[in-house]
Design a protein around this nucleic acid. Sequence first.
RNA 1: GCGCCCGUAGCUCAGUCGGAUAGAGCAUCAGCCUUCUAAGCUGAGGGUCGCUGGUUCGAUUCCAGCCGGGCGCACCA
Length: 584
Amino acid sequence: MAQGVVQDRIAQVLTESLRFAQQRGILKLEQMPVINLEAPKRPEWGDVSCTVAMSLSASERRPPFEIAQIIAEHIHERDRVFSRVDIARPGFLNLTLKPALWMEVLRHVETQRDEYGHSHLGQGRRVLVEYVSANPTGPLHVGHGRGAAVGQALVRLLRATGHEVASEYYINDAGRQMKLLGVSVLARYLESCGQTVPFPEDGYQGEYIRAVAARAKAEQGTELLSLSSNDAEQRSREFAYRELLALIRQDLDTFGITFESWFSEASLLSSGAVEEVLKELESRDLLFNQDGAQWFRSSAYGDEKDRVVRKQEGEYTYLASDIAYHRDKLRRGFDLLVDVWGADHHGYIPRMQAVVQAYGYPKDRLRVVLVQMVNLLRGGRKVEMSKRAGEFITLREVMDEVGADAAKFFFLMRDSNTHLDFDLELAKQQSQENPVYYVQYAHARIASLLRVAASRGIACPLPTQADLALLVDPDELAIIRKLSMFPVVLEASAVELEPHRMAYYLRELAGLVHPFYNKHRILPPVADADTTPAALNDPPLSTSRAPEAVPPGLTGARLALMWAVQQVVRNGLTVLGVSAPDQM
RNA sequence: GCGCCCGUAGCUCAGUCGGAUAGAGCAUCAGCCUUCUAAGCUGAGGGUCGCUGGUUCGAUUCCAGCCGGGCGCACCA
């Protein structure tokens, strides 16, 4: 577990202390415990607290408080590392570090730069993240947008933690939906040619279908009228498919998302892959025939019932191609498959995990991330959508209104498995109530600060060049402690497949930086710079708003601190796929 | 009926190996203020962590049951 440089160091110190006590026969320690460190909630509990004494209590047959004392007494060169070591009630070890130790965090940010927070946790394991995968039967709507943001963030998070990641879009270009698309477009096409035709039942109602039909007419004229209805339908289908897939790609492109591969469901059918896979399962007695249909024995792997793969009429079900698809993914040698699905598909998880197990893999070789519904609001009022009438808010509309960055950040702000209230008015606002703005502004504000400093000829030292010993203010240390948690948050977001943790972290970091900026001075006041420096030391006449005295060394140290903050904010936003602007 | 998810401050939500007096933002209230980038700053109030039991030194967290909301239970995708 990566915990950040400082935490690693403390864990090391405490482990040494335990060993020392063990050597002296004071502790038995049949096995070395994990040193679990946490950030205490209250400042008087120190910088870092450790619960290891309590977890050792049972095996050592001693009160936790005593064990904590023993650990505290055996810390090597205790005064060099800690300014305080307290023991609190049950057996908490509350540690306050020498400020100098925290400065290591800033130097670490400097050496790692864009890689700060990244790790080798994944050890190069290969992961395939499949996401969006919306049917090419219409434009992407907000729900797809959330899935896209989540999927992309997962790709980036996994990469940052040492996984080799590929991203893929599965195109459902076979079956009933495609057929419906074809007849819907054809109907609108015929309408536009002056024919009165009944609109197909269950056809796609959306206005975009008319637009596609209009383009078909513009391109092909009345040519389709001379074809047989089957041919005309096929032509419409193919045309609509190309148009809509291109539209989806464009929307994703605008959203800043690209896929390494696009995988066609139809290709699985035409290549015979589906048949082949079913034959294989049949030979292993995992398929059986009943009621004229063919079934997959998914109940053998924990699904609540068996599932049809081939209908009575002989057509394959969606599951059949999905079995072939996941077979294909596994064959490509991925160590982990991540599927991002709409939450309404949650019932499919057991059967897909059954598929994975049927191929001899543990079921968690496939991890499914569910994305819940997005509630669009405008100034607190719900934006009504009716799917039946084909009226839904598209991702495009949302991007046009609030921008891709804001949309992404909002999509990622909450646990993807919970409903999301997305207020369009809020997402557009340039105020601190808007979390996207608040976080991005932290980055831009520091950029501006560095620009101003440069224009005034003030040196902006990097952490290794600054006198960091001057950073002793609790507000400064609080920010540095926060920066030290970045690697932990990044890793947890990746391991749990929960990008919202990072979004929260960034909000919290910005929540420390803005007040710091307002409270403390970083650059010397302009007016004072022109007058006598002695003015700085005079007691201010107006008591309330005394500009803080900032000697040059402190300015340098604070600039170095801000530089590190900026780097971390940028790294965090990057991993979420959100830009880090230098100017708002 | 069965299964999954959710239930934490007025609102929207964090809180995953069980830890200390349960946190944040918004809203509300009270003061202050006009800046290195600006759309503000500081503080306060606000809670039976859905309910009930269990596990234990300790439960928002784990288990069981109930209540409430969402979703799913297709030879649709």
